[in-house]
Computed example of a mutant assay.
Amino acid sequence: MSQPVVVEVLTKQGCHLCVDALAAARQVCAEFGIEPLERDITTDEELLSIYAEELPVLLIDGRVKDFWRIDPQRLRRLLSETDAGR
């Protein structure tokens, strides 16, 4: 049995792009039976130093797949290529 796919959206408070990205991720992930995780980078100094200028950031299984704007079609394609799409 394979591991479940983990979708994570890195965000911070007051980021309107983050709100939009999280909504898009929730909508697409629901099609695959996945609940995306939201992670506020302001609570993690290392993540803040790495991703502060690229928010929001979409990770699938810990790997960066998109940033700034989350394209629902691209996310749908990426998920269909993982175990979530099988």
Rank of each mutant, 00 (worst) to 15 (best):
M1C: 13
M1S: 15
Q3K: 14
P4Y: 06
V5L: 00
V6M: 11
V6L: 13
V7F: 06
V7M: 01
V7E: 06
V7Q: 01
E8Q: 14
L10D: 01
T11Q: 10
K12T: 14
K12S: 11
K12C: 07
Q13M: 06
Q13R: 13
G14P: 06
G14H: 08
C15I: 05
C15Y: 05
C15S: 07
H16D: 11
H16G: 05
L17Q: 08
L17I: 03
C18I: 12
C18N: 09
V19N: 03
D20Q: 14
D20T: 13
D20H: 07
A21L: 05
L22K: 04
L22M: 15
L22I: 07
L22T: 07
A23N: 06
A23W: 03
A23E: 03
A24C: 05
A24D: 05
A25G: 02
A25I: 00
A25V: 02
Q27T: 15
V28M: 02
C29M: 00
C29S: 00
A30K: 02
A30P: 03
E31C: 10
E31A: 15
E31P: 08
E31V: 04
E31H: 10
F32T: 01
I34Q: 02
I34R: 04
E35M: 06
E35Q: 12
P36Q: 00
L37C: 05
L37P: 00
R39F: 07
R39H: 13
R39N: 06
D40S: 03
I41R: 01
I41F: 01
T43D: 14
D44P: 12
E45N: 11
E46F: 09
L47N: 01
L47R: 07
L48T: 12
S49M: 12
I50S: 06
I50W: 05
Y51F: 15
Y51P: 02
Y51G: 01
A52L: 14
E53A: 15
E53P: 02
E54M: 11
L55T: 07
L55R: 11
P56I: 04
P56Q: 02
V57M: 12
V57N: 10
L58I: 00
L58T: 00
L59G: 06
I60V: 15
I60H: 08
I60G: 08
D61G: 09
D61W: 04
G62Q: 12
G62F: 12
G62K: 09
G62W: 11
G62Y: 10
R63D: 08
V64A: 09
V64S: 02
V64M: 08
K65N: 11
K65A: 08
F67I: 01
F67C: 14
W68E: 08
R69Y: 15
R69E: 14
R69C: 13
R69D: 11
I70Q: 03
I70A: 09
D71W: 04
P72L: 10
Q73W: 09
Q73M: 10
R74G: 04
L75G: 04
L75N: 05
L75D: 03
R77D: 13
R77H: 06
R77Y: 04
L78V: 02
S80T: 13
S80W: 08
T82I: 08
T82F: 10
T82Y: 09
T82S: 15
D83W: 14
D83G: 14
A84G: 05
A84I: 07
A84D: 03
A84N: 08
G85E: 06
G85C: 09
G85T: 05
R86S: 15
R86M: 13
R86L: 13
